[in-house]
Protein backbone atom coordinates (compact mmCIF):
# COMPACT_ATOMS: atom_id res chain seq x y z
CA UNK A 1 0.00 0.00 0.00
CA UNK A 2 1.50 3.27 -1.07
CA UNK A 3 1.29 5.97 1.58
CA UNK A 4 0.56 9.41 0.23
CA UNK A 5 -0.09 12.29 2.62
CA UNK A 6 -2.36 15.23 1.83
CA UNK A 7 0.51 17.79 1.66
CA UNK A 8 2.41 15.60 -0.76
CA UNK A 9 -0.72 15.22 -2.90
CA UNK A 10 -1.16 18.99 -3.00
CA UNK A 11 2.51 19.51 -3.85
CA UNK A 12 2.15 16.91 -6.56
CA UNK A 13 -0.87 18.62 -8.05
CA UNK A 14 0.83 22.02 -7.94
CA UNK A 15 3.83 20.57 -9.70
CA UNK A 16 1.61 18.98 -12.31
CA UNK A 17 -0.25 22.20 -12.98
CA UNK A 18 2.74 24.53 -12.84
CA UNK A 19 5.54 22.63 -14.51
CA UNK A 20 5.13 21.66 -18.12
CA UNK A 21 8.32 19.59 -18.09
CA UNK A 22 6.71 16.88 -16.02
CA UNK A 23 5.29 14.21 -18.28
CA UNK A 24 2.25 12.07 -17.42
CA UNK A 25 3.79 9.20 -15.47
CA UNK A 26 0.88 6.80 -15.79
CA UNK A 27 0.40 6.08 -19.49
CA UNK A 28 -3.06 5.42 -20.90
CA UNK A 29 -2.25 1.73 -21.47
CA UNK A 30 -1.37 1.45 -17.77
CA UNK A 31 -4.81 2.55 -16.58
CA UNK A 32 -6.78 -0.62 -17.16
CA UNK A 33 -7.11 -1.24 -13.42
CA UNK A 34 -8.23 2.35 -12.80
CA UNK A 35 -10.83 1.95 -15.54
CA UNK A 36 -12.31 -1.16 -13.89
CA UNK A 37 -15.93 -0.41 -12.94
CA UNK A 38 -15.23 -1.47 -9.35
CA UNK A 39 -12.99 1.64 -9.05
CA UNK A 40 -15.85 4.01 -9.81
CA UNK A 41 -17.23 5.93 -6.83
CA UNK A 42 -20.63 5.95 -8.56
CA UNK A 43 -20.83 2.51 -10.17
CA UNK A 44 -24.61 2.72 -9.97
CA UNK A 45 -25.71 6.38 -10.28
CA UNK A 46 -29.29 5.67 -9.21
CA UNK A 47 -28.04 4.27 -5.89
CA UNK A 48 -25.41 6.97 -5.40
CA UNK A 49 -27.92 9.80 -5.79
CA UNK A 50 -30.41 8.05 -3.49
CA UNK A 51 -27.91 7.69 -0.63
CA UNK A 52 -26.83 11.32 -1.12
CA UNK A 53 -30.49 12.31 -0.76
CA UNK A 54 -30.84 10.24 2.44
CA UNK A 55 -27.80 11.82 4.08
CA UNK A 56 -28.84 15.34 3.02
CA UNK A 57 -32.21 14.79 4.70
CA UNK A 58 -30.68 13.64 8.00
CA UNK A 59 -27.59 15.88 8.23
CA UNK A 60 -26.89 19.61 7.95
CA UNK A 61 -23.79 19.16 5.81
CA UNK A 62 -24.29 19.46 2.07
CA UNK A 63 -22.21 19.84 -1.06
CA UNK A 64 -19.12 18.21 -2.57
CA UNK A 65 -20.84 14.84 -2.47
CA UNK A 66 -19.33 13.82 -5.75
CA UNK A 67 -21.52 13.40 -8.74
CA UNK A 68 -22.45 10.46 -10.78
CA UNK A 69 -20.55 12.16 -13.60
CA UNK A 70 -17.01 11.66 -14.77
CA UNK A 71 -13.86 13.07 -13.31
CA UNK A 72 -11.90 9.87 -12.93
CA UNK A 73 -9.60 10.61 -15.84
CA UNK A 74 -9.71 6.97 -16.85
CA UNK A 75 -12.84 6.49 -18.89
Amino acid sequence: MIKISLPSCIMLLLLVSGCSKIEPWVKPYERDQLADPIMSSARDPVSKSYMTHVYQAREAARGAEGGAGGGCGCN
Partner: peptide, 17 residues
Protein backbone atom coordinates in the same frame (compact mmCIF):
# COMPACT_ATOMS: atom_id res chain seq x y z
CA UNK B 1 -13.12 19.56 -8.57
CA UNK B 2 -9.84 18.04 -9.65
CA UNK B 3 -9.50 14.33 -10.24
CA UNK B 4 -5.96 13.02 -10.45
CA UNK B 5 -4.46 9.69 -11.40
CA UNK B 6 -1.61 9.23 -8.91
CA UNK B 7 -0.37 5.73 -9.69
CA UNK B 8 -1.49 2.77 -11.81
CA UNK B 9 -3.67 1.73 -8.88
CA UNK B 10 -4.54 4.95 -7.11
CA UNK B 11 -6.81 7.80 -8.13
CA UNK B 12 -7.87 10.75 -5.98
CA UNK B 13 -10.30 13.62 -6.22
CA UNK B 14 -10.46 16.96 -4.44
CA UNK B 15 -13.86 18.69 -4.61
CA UNK B 16 -15.02 22.04 -3.26
CA UNK B 17 -18.60 23.31 -3.31
Amino acid sequence: SLSQVLTKKLIAELAVE
